[in-house]
């Protein structure tokens, strides 16, 4: 009974809708990770990670601090490339193509795999210019197309109504939660297939967090989402599948319900019930 405690505090409806769909139909994996290892210099931080991320679902990565979940999510768009002396081994395939193979265009990869960071990082530009940035560097110049995409992206990020009258204001004039949704809109504007979120709500208050979670819920209709979170209730609320990381290893991966209600490993149960972490 004690293992069910955290679940009791949640809205049951937030958990239920995911299970029937995933249980009945096979969804081909969008991301396939095989024996992936990662090193910062001599430090071996990810050990033989293998997992499959299904398309148009939300996959949550949970685990204690320093377990490698952030490193892992940053490996999917090769964001770790900018850290000197860091390198990955093994394969991460997106639609069957190994992004760590030779001839991978990292710039092209990152256009397909958007990312939202823990600390919102709007550019020192106007709200409009922030959302249009990805399009502009991609060579889009037409005012009409820019306007249309900026509006569409802000609507998708549930921010349009709050900012439509002040698109030319500095992005820094927005609140923390709005800034994070702006960063989501900015990522959506380049129309990625995958959206990586590295603790997107950890710096936000509960109301802003709820908004981000509702947004994730809506976005999964169009995007494959991988979200790192410290908050287990959040993982339970928003994700279809959950991967539990510990000390650089993938301990357990499966349907979110299973991970939380009936985990295979004792240590997973201890973590999701809050015995440590």
């Amino acid at each position: 009974m004690t293992t069910l405690m955290p679940m009791m505090t949640m809205e049951p409806t937030m958990l239920m809708p995911t299970s029937p769909a995933t249980a009945t139909s096979y969804v081909p994996p969008k991301i396939t990770v095989q024996n992936f290892n990662f090193f910062y210099g001599d430090a071996h931080v990810l050990h033989d990670i293998s997992l499959e991320v299904p398309e148009r679902q939300v996959t949550a990565l949970i685990g204690p601090s320093g377990c490698g979940k952030s490193t892992f999510v940053r490996s999917i768009n090769r964001m770790n490339d900018i850290i000197p002396e860091a390198h990955g081994e093994g394969t991460i395939e997106i639609d069957g193509r190994n992004i760590y193979g030779p001839g991978t265009d990292v710039v092209e990869l990152r256009r397909r795999v958007g990312m939202v960071f823990q600390k919102s990082n709007p550019f020192p530009k106007s709200i409009y210019e922030n959302v249009a940035y990805g399009l502009k560097i991609g060579g889009v110049r037409g005012r009409g197309q820019l306007n249309e995409t900026v509006e569409k992206s802000l609507r998708r990020a549930a921010l349009w109504d709050e900012v439509k009258d002040r698109l030319n204001d500095s992005a820094f004039a927005l609140s923390g939660g709005q800034q994070q949704r702006l960063c989501i809109a900015r990522a959506l504007a380049v129309d990625p297939e995958i959206l990586l979120m590295d603790e997107p709500a950890s710096a936000l208050d509960p109301i802003a967090t709820t908004k981000i979670e509702e947004l994730i819920w809506e976005l999964k209709a169009n995007y494959t989402i991988v979200i790192v979170t410290h908050n287990m209730q959040q993982a339970a609320r928003v994700s279809d599948r959950t991967a539990f990381f510990m000390l650089g290893k993938l301990v357990e991966y499966g349907e979110t319900n299973t991970i939380f209600m009936n985990p295979r490993e004792k240590i997973t149960e201890d973590y999701v019930t809050g015995r440590f972490g």
Partner: peptide
């Protein structure tokens, strides 16, 4: 974070430097 934000949107290194 600004550099990461630009790179994550598919900016090249020089583009990130000069535009952000």
């Amino acid at each position: 974070g600004l550099r990461e934000g630009a790179l994550a949107l598919g900016a090249t290194r020089s583009r990130a430097v000069f535009s952000v």
